[in-house]
């Protein structure tokens, strides 16, 4: 029996009490985080807040706790909410939609549908087999990794509501436009023929119906554990690099090479970000440190999007159903979209 099963509350009142209790502990820990590390690093260990070592260590400890708390809270809430959606329901909603409306809907559903990139191929075949247009399917496949809950959690915590909304809005626009473009180039000729011969057989099982609240809450707790176990190495490397930049990088080093004055900044950020395989948890601590060093938000958002939206493992998986020209078009269109968004943000915000 797992810890969760043993602790599972047995009545609705106990369940609500447990949730409220957990939320109270979470807020207390979040509020105490800064005073705690101020006291430990600066008072107890006697480090100078102005020194490189002192501010670097403080940044690392404070950020690690803050990010883990943010991730745990937001992944839990998102997983419980998403337990009401499923790929099967999304497919049913998209069936019979025309391009245009379909692309908008597919991008929005890509954000709220629980989806693991390891399901990209079966979902792709399943969508096409039931008559969802290629471009609409692509909007879904772009939006799903591009706008992810880990990035939303961290942006919200580190930069506030404004940049988070910009990120979600920009991600939706990129997914919609990419799908519209890929729907226009007669992409069917670059899809492996077996896709069109496959019939979606059997009866579809919707995994989300008849779940109890206890099960949904348990799924949320388990998902927090699963994601944290998977991303902690990325997180520590990201925060470590962030701490080094925070403490040691000269104030104007990055601003000179990738700051608002350099017109190629966004382009370079995206070109570095596409092959880089990490996730939002590893990238955002870095983004935070670089932002403190004067890099513009558009460049940084473009960098983060390039890292999370296009990953080599997913491209290798998609190669099973897409021929190289379509893979190239897919990567190219999404990368161009991210570059355009980066420049637009720098223009608007700068």
């Amino acid at each position: 029996m797992t810890l969760v099963e043993r602790l599972r509350p047995t009545t609705p009142v106990l369940r609500v009490a447990a949730l409220v209790g957990a939320a109270a502990v979470w807020f207390a820990a979040y509020e105490l985080n800064r005073p705690l590390w101020d006291a430990v690093v600066f008072d107890l260990a006697g480090q100078d807040p102005e020194s490189r070592l002192g501010s670097g260590i403080h940044f690392f400890l404070y950020d690690t706790v803050k990010i883990v708390l943010l991730l745990a809270g937001i992944i839990f809430v998102v997983t419980v909410l998403r337990s009401f959606m499923s790929v099967e329901r999304t497919r049913a909603l998209l069936g019979g939609r025309r391009e245009g409306v379909g692309n908008v809907l597919a991008a929005a559903l890509g954000v709220i549908t629980p989806f693991c990139s390891c399901s990209a191929v079966p979902a792709f075949i399943g969508f096409l087999a039931t008559g969802v247009p290629v471009g609409v399917t692509m909007s879904f496949l772009v939006a799903s990794p591009l706008i992810n809950e880990v990035a939303i959690a961290l942006l919200l915590g580190l930069f506030g509501v404004g940049p988070t909304l910009l990120y979600v809005g920009a991600g939706l626009v990129i997914a919609i436009v990419s799908g519209l473009v890929l729907g226009r180039i007669r992409a069917e000729r670059w899809i492996e023929p077996f896709v069109f011969e496959t019939r979606l057989g059997g009866q579809l099982i919707d995994s989300t119906v008849r779940l109890t609240w206890d099960q949904r809450i348990q799924m949320g707790v388990e998902e927090v554990g699963t994601i944290l176990r998977r991303i902690w190495p990325y997180l520590l490397v990201g925060i470590g690099l962030g701490a080094v930049i925070h403490g040691w990088a000269p104030e104007d080093f990055f601003a000179t090479y990738a700051g608002p004055g350099n017109p190629a900044g966004v382009l370079v950020a995206v070109l570095i970000g596409v092959p880089l395989y990490s996730n939002a948890a590893g990238v955002l601590p870095l983004v935070e440190a670089l932002h403190d060093k004067g890099l513009p938000m558009g460049t940084l958002l473009a960098f983060m999007m390039a890292v999370v939206a296009l990953s080599l493992p997913e491209i290798i998986l998609l190669r099973r159903v897409l021929r190289p020209p379509l893979i190239a078009a897919f990567v190219g269109v999404v990368a161009l979209g991210i570059i355009a968004v980066g420049y637009l943000f720098n223009l608007v915000l700068g």
Binding site: S86, V87, E88, R91, P114, F115, C116, C118, S119, V121, P122, A123, I125, G126, F127, A129, F194, E197, T198, R199, L200, G201, G202, Q203, L204, I205, S207, R320, V321
Partner: peptide, 13 residues
């Protein structure tokens, strides 16, 4: 094998 998986009606693994 993907065609077989989809053949059982599975879209999310």
């Amino acid at each position: 094998d993907f065609p077989t998986i989809v053949g059982y009606g599975v879209m999310s693994t």
